[in-house]
Simulated assay, not measured.
Amino acid sequence: MITQEKFQTLLSFEPSEQKVLTLYLNTDSGEEPTEAIKLKAKNLLGEANCMEADVQAVETYLNHSFDWKSPGLAVFSSRDGDFFETFPTAVSFRNRLRITPKPYLKPLGHLLEHYAHYGVILVDRIGARFFTYHLGELQESDGYMGEEIHKLKQGRGSSAIGRRGGTGGGSREEENARRNLRDAANVAAEFFSNKPIRRLFLGGTAENTAQFRDLLPKQMQSCLIASFVIDMNAGEHEVRAETLKLLNTANAEREKKLVKTLLGTSASGGAAVLGLDDTLQAISNRRVQTLLLSDGFQLPGYVDYNSGFVVANLAKSPLSEPELTAVDDVIDTAFTLTLNQGAHVEVIRDNPDLENAGNIGALLRF
């Protein structure tokens, strides 16, 4: 599994004359046969005929080392520099190949940002099950079982007890269910108390999840993203699949809001820039707080790695062409520089508003 520390190491990769081959693959063998995935990989690698040793290393890994249990795979190779890293993931990638001076990291950065540390609670009137996930992989699970609820038969005491002023059968059932929900919420709070959960999902019937939500601590309620209908006894694989779908939906909504904020801030004359030249200038000046990029957007440009200056249009550069290093993908360079500056980067998928604004923009620190 990719870690934040390993990602930082990849970010710090020192470029050299030897390029890095980066391959992202959708390796979900449940969607299509393994041999079909290998053929797609082979076709992509055909674009890297100038890097025969790296192509051979990747094909050897796919044929002999990769276990095909993970639906996603990222590979980085620069054989002359003795550099070969693989990261199977529980979340699939779009197929793509890049040959760049440094590892191409935007899809991996998106994975770390949107699929890190989330929790799931399944609840019914008797108990609850708890799950923690990181990058789509199950980390820990537990559960709680309360008092079993016995329904009284119709006409055997429920109404009679009620007439005598006691507690009717239906009332006892409801009280037992409420007590079970309260106890389950307390156990859930303890289970998640020491876990770095960013997002939380509730599963069960609409009635049970609504009642359970109000019993959780405020801090856990603030992490709740969505509730969904699922059987309490559903298998873990189904739980994971359903919550990944919900994460994708939540991420898409979040991206729309970010783009709307960017465009609105720019339109009102606030601390924001749009378009390639102004955004690259803001990165060079270390003014960026959050960089937004359209997924797949790439253009050639220039960089001075020592100063962190990046530019696409030489007419906008105070440095001459001999003082700069030409790069095939200045957008990926901007991505790496921004993260190294401690700023935040969002790779936005399929957003026409951002595309119409030039595919790139940034909210600024000042």
Rank of each mutant, 00 (worst) to 15 (best):
S222K: 14
N356Q: 15
L10N: 08
D28H: 12
M51N: 03
F130Y: 00
T205P: 00
L354Q: 14
K38T: 04
G361H: 06
L262H: 11
E5I: 12
L11W: 04
D54E: 15
R179A: 06
L23R: 11
P318F: 15
L152P: 03
S317Q: 05
M145A: 01
Y104K: 07
A271M: 07
G155N: 13
Y133K: 01
G127F: 01
L337T: 05
V123E: 04
T279A: 00
E113P: 05
L274H: 03
G235Y: 02
A188K: 01
F13R: 10
N251F: 14
S78W: 13
I230W: 03
F7A: 12
P196G: 02
L200S: 14
S222E: 15
D278W: 07
L216R: 02
D183G: 04
F76Q: 04
I331Q: 11
S320G: 01
P88D: 00
G204F: 04
L363I: 12
E32M: 01
A128H: 00
A241Q: 05
D82W: 14
T27S: 15
F93S: 15
A90Y: 14
L215E: 14
R156C: 06
R286Y: 03
K260G: 00
A206C: 05
T325L: 15
H114M: 07
L354N: 05
L21F: 10
S294A: 08
T336E: 15
F87L: 07
N313D: 12
G296T: 11
F131Q: 01
E59M: 08
A250L: 02
L247N: 08
L258A: 10
E147F: 05
L181S: 00
I149S: 09
G358F: 10
I161R: 11
F201A: 11
R94M: 08
A271Q: 13
D82A: 10
E238Q: 12
I2Y: 03
M232N: 11
K316P: 04
L363K: 07
E85H: 10
V55M: 09
